[in-house]
Design a protein around this nucleic acid. Structure first.
Lengths: 158, 158
DNA sequence: GTATATGCAAACCTTTTGCACAGAG
DNA sequence: CTCTGTGCAAAAGGTTTGCATATAC
């Protein structure tokens, strides 16, 4: 994890961005919560524990910057908040998600399932693919087991 | 198109929703702009031409209703607005999109490309898929031809 | 006639921005 | 020392909600 942190620091440096404590704390929070899908507010609250003086605006600016550098992906599960998802080391595209419409849990799929599909699209449409977003909505195995029938709730975090 | 309109009216009726002129005008607008990806505001302006007294809140409520009935899909291309996409007659899932990061154009892919992928996921994850969202971001054929280098702009409409 | 739907305006939330000050390089 | 980055508060969207009125059935 420290290796990844150093790598990100270098990336910032190499693009002439300053390495402020706020940026460092934000990246740390993202690394410590890699499995989650934090909103800006979520990140803000977590960063505040390390750097209490930080402002929400700075968090937004930092996340925006990391998104431009393709260190995080800004994703949206349709609940009105943007969420920020750290890219896997060396990955050149966003990974996929399974969103449970009963309990709101989100699982990540690392495996790239779209290789063939992308080839077909680039050929059929003369479209040069740079990235993709793939999300499946359905019932997770836990909820299937529980036979839950509660109203669909989309909390999406975690 | 009238056939589709009637079908939607029946669907509303069968669920005991009232058939108001506002709802009818909203559905008409969606049908007349099937190729586009209208925001609530877009729909509002177009519906106003048919029913000038309509309020924006009613448009939101109607789109929300149509989304629940799975007549439209609420989609989000990451530009901060929700867009509403009419489902194809009989389709049981959202179709796919190609978003150009240069000119902002959005093309639709009718073909279902995810059949095999979904089978694999349902098997590997015991996840019961109800719907999906798939969007590719890249350079459309026109922009490739134009060799455009302008700054990326994401208008997403149309 | 009655319960649902509408219009308007205010409220809400997330995200962005302006500006004076602070601090990394 | 300079220019980028930060914090704060205000502004700016987009979307939702409360309430009195209108209307589909």
């Amino acid at each position: 994890m420290t290796a990844r942190l150093d790598q990100i620091k270098k990336e910032l440096h190499s693009q002439s961005y300053k390495l402020t404590p706020q940026r460092e704390a934000t990246v740390e929070v993202l690394l410590e919560n890699e499995e989650d899908h934090l909103s800006a507010e979520d990140v803000y609250l977590l960063v505040k524990e390390k750097a209490p003086e930080i402002g929400l605006a700075t968090v937004y600016r930092t996340l925006e910057l990391l998104n431009e550098l393709e260190i995080v992906d800004k994703i949206n599960f349709g609940d009105g908040v943007s969420r920020y998802d750290l890219r896997k080391e060396g990955a050149n595209h966003s990974h996929h998600h399974l969103v449970c419409i009963q309990c709101g849990s989100v699982s990540e799929i690392e495996e790239d399932l779209l290789g063939d599909v992308e080839k077909k699209i680039e050929a059929d449409w003369t479209f040069k693919i740079k990235d993709h977003r793939l999300t499946f909505h359905g019932i997770c195995s836990e909820c299937q087991a529980k036979h839950e029938t509660g109203s669909p709730l989309l909390k999406a975090a975690r």
